[in-house]
């Protein structure tokens, strides 16, 4: 697991090419697997990029056992 960093995140964005609703779920899964959680800034950024609302993405992720919105042990 890596510490979250904008540079690493940016690289992930570049790797996926164009981020849209069609590949958002898979991308967020990769963010989760890479950093151990999905940071708030990622939800806000991907919301902007895909046109979905942050509340929609947030609400969705909280329904999955294997998505964390906070780093383990981070309160």
């Amino acid at each position: 697991m890596e510490k979250f960093g904008t540079a690493r995140y940016q690289k992930m964005l570049n790797d996926i090419g164009e981020l849209g609703v069609e590949n958002l779920f898979g991308f967020l899964g990769k963010v989760q697997d890479t950093f151990g959680y999905v940071p708030r800034e990622v939800i806000e950024d991907t919301a902007r990029r895909t046109g979905l609302s942050p509340s929609r993405i947030y609400g969705a992720l909280t329904s999955y056992r294997d998505f964390n919105l906070k780093l383990e042990g981070d309160g």
């Binding site: 958002l24 898979g26 967020l28 899964g29 989760q32 969705a60």
Partner: peptide, 28 residues
């Protein structure tokens, strides 16, 4: 083809919930 790793929910085996999941919705 996109390979998607499930996120630990039994219900995503149900086709509608699976579709919701791919739409980044709550898996229901």
């Amino acid at each position: 083809l996109q390979v998607i790793k499930g996120k630990g929910l039994y219900i995503t085996g149900e086709e509608c919930a699976l579709i919701s999941s791919l739409e980044t919705r709550r898996a229901t």
